[in-house]
Amino acid sequence: MTHAMVLGQRALREAWRTPEALLPTLFIPLFFLVVNVGQAGKIFPTGSTPFLEGQNYAAFQLPSSILLAASFGSAALYLVEDIEGGYFDKLRAAPVSRTAIVLGRLAAEAAKSVAITTAIVLLALPFGISIASGPIGFLLLILLTASWAVVFAGFMQLIALKTRSAAATNSGGLVFFPLLFLTPNFVPRDLLTRPMEIASTYNPVTYIMEGLRSLILEDLAWAPIGRGFAVVAVLGVLMVALNVRTIRRYD
């Protein structure tokens, strides 16, 4: 566990010293929030849109922005730099468990996500958004988002380990956009067309988005929250296991 912590601290230092890579993860999601609300806000007025639960459309859109911020996966690009520069071999030649090598970076990614998600939520408050589930709900929202950040960073790290290429890893990250748009992104699932509803039902991101949305719009509703956490737990275990296996087999 000490090794994972030491490597996590190093990954955080690395991010702190590269603010130019960190800032877009804050501003691009906020940009999407403003643009999406600007385009569709008037279609869904607060008073006559039941699924908004008395809040405005920005509150409905906030989970998309939060998930986008958690899906930049910059940890994988730093990993490619380590591979290309030889530092990854230095780590592999040390008596460090392969799990610690994976968890160090993922823990740092979770910590970064906590900071960025908190900042986005705070910056969203002036848009008239509130967290209906209260302080506990806010903490759960941060935890669920950070867990998703770990899952997605794990996925990106897998691409980095397999391809050892920054270009391929960057391109792999774009897979998040289809995943994001195949969710009940603009309206709840029951208002989607049938094909979209089916696609979103099979998309794991849907359940994380619905969990986050319920924390923002409703009092603590354990069913959608539980589904969200179950999805990130399963995917998280899968990603860590695949990463560890890939490093063990890395030649």
């Binding site: 190093r10 030889g86 530092y87 990854f88 071999d89």
Partner: peptide, 10 residues
């Protein structure tokens, strides 16, 4: 190893 295995940001 051949490439000095260092992390340039540290």
């Amino acid at each position: 190893l051949q490439e000095a295995g260092l992390d340039a940001r540290q």
